[in-house]
Design a protein around this nucleic acid. Structure first.
Lengths: 120, 120
DNA sequence: GTTTTAATTCGATAATTCTCGAAATATAAA
DNA sequence: TTTATATTTCGAGAATTATCGAATTAAAAC
């Protein structure tokens, strides 16, 4: 998908989220929804200088966890849902081998509509 | 639970996994099951010197992702299932706000027994 | 007690990541 | 075309993390 093994990609994605500011930004962007937020607002709302924030956003983007979209002078950053889903799915499947002790029932604690499970 | 806010704890846990060697070790320990593996075997199997591995194991333990248990001279490390579950649950609930684009149906791709979902 | 084995801690260096002001780029408005 | 605004890239210092041999601790065997 991007020339990296799943492990290496996962390490990058985990590292991207393993930072107080970047984790906060990702959460903000999830809350902001598909339109996301413009770079300046992200920097301001977190109290981080624009150049520093730019690096953090680039890190998140390289990791496939956020997307940038230019709209005239403004750059909108938004959460990359498939990217995050890929990470969750890696952690549950590859990393945890789907072990029920870690993975079972996680859906039930979410506000996801309960799956009409295709029973085996 | 440990004097840290959930965010700070999550950052530590993510950072612990955001390393090629440590991610590989965690996966090994999940595969090894509840008995885990002794420190020496982990070091040998990954080709990392014991002192280096000791640091990595300590990092994973501090993050609540593995457990150490001494048995005479040997120290067994095993995956901390509740710890990992806490991380997954943080990522899905707090971080992703349970957004279906990221979280829905993740259980269905696992070998978890399908949940007898308590429909609303 | 001494020796042996397993693992950790120490200590010092190397490598990476973080931070942020200054300079550069991109786009639009005047 | 100049000016203004939004953002990034550059560059360099600070901080953190990684690595691993040597020394140390822990437990058992001799």
């Amino acid at each position: 998908m991007n020339g990296l093994t799943p492990q290496v990609w996962a390490v990058d994605a985990l590292a991207a989220l393993a930072h107080e500011t970047r984790l906060a930004v990702f959460r903000m962007l999830v809350t902001a929804g598909p339109d996301g937020m413009i770079a300046g607002a992200i920097a301001e709302q977190t109290g981080v200088p624009p150049s520093t924030m730019s690096h953090h956003l680039a890190t998140l983007e390289r990791a496939g966890l956020v997307q940038a979209r230019r709209e005239s002078r403004l750059i909108h950053y938004s959460a990359d849902y498939p990217g995050m889903r890929r990470l969750l799915s890696f952690l549950m499947q590859d990393c945890c081998q789907g072990a029920p002790e870690m993975c079972a029932d996680l859906s039930t604690i979410l506000r996801c509509p309960p799956v009409q499970s295709a029973n085996v």
